[in-house]
Simulated scan of single mutants.
Amino acid sequence: MIELHMFPMSHYNEKARWALDYKGIPHTRIPYMPGPHAGKIKKLSGQTQTPVIRFEDGDVLAGSTDIVLELEKRFPQPTLLPADEGAQKQALDLVEKFDGDIAVKERRSLFVHLIDEPDYLCSMFAQGQTPAKRFIYRRMLPLVKGMMRRSMDIHPDALEEGNALTRQAFDYVAAQTRDTGYLVGDQFTIADLTAAAILAPSVQLDYADMMKPKPVAPSIQAYLDQFADHPGAQWVRTMYEQHRAPLRVAA
């Protein structure tokens, strides 16, 4: 059985989950908590970032885009790549665009709030863990606050910078999809999957994998509210409604 080693609430990890579900590929999900995950993930893949996938033949691959492209090779239907070479390049360029500054700075602006909401942060990132592990993780969070600030480069301008870039990303998808509903051509591609997954943390969604724990912390709700009525946020919700297939997680 294919294994996906992942964080429950993460836009990069959501890309891999979405591709697996879109293609209807049965798999097992193994959730980790950020921080304590590092040792096991490094032993598995030689590095510490998630998502990591282990295929049935034993091959291990890290990185959301590399995982999606490998799934495309192994399970070509339904396809996520445009047939036209030029359109394919355009789609992959957009993947790089959203995976870069947009994803990093959006996450940073969210963590400006989350880092001061340890109970809520724990509820987001300790999903699927035993009560004992959740308790230990919650007690540990204040001790690693400084490390989290440094690792994500959370600085005084991070919130304003991240909010501005996230709004620009919403502006972009709203304008780019106005005619066809999609970023490249007139069908759902890896570009749409990536953009919607990357922007999902900034949208209130009802889809289980990216649904914020309730009640939502007031500071997080205020963050979400600023984008709630944006046409780009509505586009993200539409992509989830139309293209986020039912879960195919193995029992």
Rank of each mutant, 00 (worst) to 15 (best):
I2Q: 02
D192E: 14
V249S: 11
K89I: 14
V184H: 09
P31S: 05
M1R: 05
G24N: 03
G100M: 10
A87Y: 12
A217H: 12
M210L: 13
A191Y: 07
Q234V: 08
R107M: 10
F75G: 04
I154W: 05
D59Q: 13
Y120F: 11
Y182D: 10
P26G: 06
T189Q: 10
Q221P: 08
T28Y: 06
A217N: 09
R17G: 01
L61Q: 01
N163H: 13
R138D: 06
D179M: 10
Q226R: 15
Q226T: 12
Y172C: 09
V68T: 07
L247K: 13
D153R: 15
R178D: 14
M239P: 01
V68E: 01
R74K: 12
M33W: 01
K40L: 05
H243D: 06
I220V: 15
F55V: 02
A245I: 07
S151E: 13
D192R: 08
Y207A: 15
R248N: 13
Q221F: 07
F75E: 06
M210R: 03
F170L: 11
D229E: 14
P118F: 01
E241S: 15
D179P: 10
R150C: 08
S45V: 00
K89G: 08
A16T: 01
D171K: 01
K133F: 13
D101M: 10
P231K: 02
M124Y: 02
D153Q: 15
A91G: 11
P8N: 04
P26W: 02
M124E: 02
Q204A: 15
G86M: 09
D171M: 05
S10M: 03
P31H: 04
L159H: 13
